[in-house]
Amino acid sequence: MLTFKDLIKAKAGDPRAIEDFCLDTWETTYRFVYYKVQNREEAEDITQETYVKFLSSLNQQSTPIDNIGGYLKVVALNVIRDKWRRNKRRGTLVNIEDINPSKMASQDCQDTITERLQVEEALAQLKEEQRTILELRIIKGYSVADTAKLIGKSEGAVRTIQHRALRVLSKILTAKNE
């Protein structure tokens, strides 16, 4: 069981304390970050930055020792949003002090399930050809060339259909969220 004393040691740079803390919690944090950024390279980097930010901002008053996982997610979300904001993407910074991590953690889990269901429903509304291309390209991870070969279309056609399908899907998902 993680204690505040362990975290203070980790904050002071104690390798053993940091290792124990990371081994205990990395997977949930990594999965959360991956869910947001959808690539391993960025997920690994952001997870690392999350731990440094978390330990640097650690203080007894605001760190909920009974829900470190939830708090790590809040920090991770801030790191992601900060990066996206720097890249001129949208996203408002979440104030760590204002957030209830336990609510955030459970809410996030429910959100994930709801979001997945919404995506599945939205995909089902696409034309079959559009859905097939998005499934092959994004879910199965095939290249444009392989997708073209699989469905018997040119690479140019695959890119065009893929683009149209994403526009339609984006509209459906936006409408669902409004």
Binding site: L23, Y34, V37, Q38, A43, T47, E115, R116, L134, G141
Partner: peptide, 21 residues
């Protein structure tokens, strides 16, 4: 990214936790 959440996340190599710490 939303569509991609339907697939399982790609986990890092087994030595990642060590590299991370």
């Amino acid at each position: 990214r939303q569509v991609r959440t339907l697939r399982e996340p790609e986990m890092p190599d087994s030595d990642y936790p060590k590299r991370l710490s």
